[in-house]
Design a protein around this nucleic acid. Structure first.
Length: 105
DNA sequence: GGCGTGACCCCAT
DNA sequence: TATGGGGCCACGC
């Protein structure tokens, strides 16, 4: 039986897993879904990328539309997003409103 | 057991 | 429009 380090990061992963391919979400959306403003804690959990191979951490971007950062590098993150069908330019998502996935829907 | 940092966000100036 | 400051949660030392 595996015990999670914290419920918080597991929540982030779970929500993130709900994001379909070709779509992205923001740290703030996840934080809000957790009923918290700890957008930093979300990123922190991803930074540890405990589940990089299990969680599409690259589908998480900033609210400004910028990709932000990534364990393997923002550049790699942009490439992955583009491959999934997300329009990315200069490290920023072009049609954020179109690819942004909301948990509140 | 306490302080600082971090894949951030929002508001005010 | 750009810059500064405050705030939130988890983790490392």
């Amino acid at each position: 039986m595996v015990m999670p380090k914290s419920n918080f990061n597991e929540r982030c992963y779970k929500l993130l897993k709900l994001v379909p391919e070709g779509k992205v979400t923001t740290y703030s959306e996840i934080a809000k879904a957790l009923n918290s403003k700890a957008c930093r804690a979300v990123g922190s959990a991803m930074a540890r990328n405990s589940n990089l191979l299990v969680i599409p951490c690259h589908r998480v971007i900033r609210s400004d539309g910028y990709i932000g950062n990534y364990a393997l590098g923002a550049d790699k993150k942009a490439e992955l997003l583009i491959k999934e069908g997300v329009a990315v330019s200069n490290g920023k998502v072009k049609d954020l409103g179109k690819v942004l996935y909301r948990f509140d829907t």
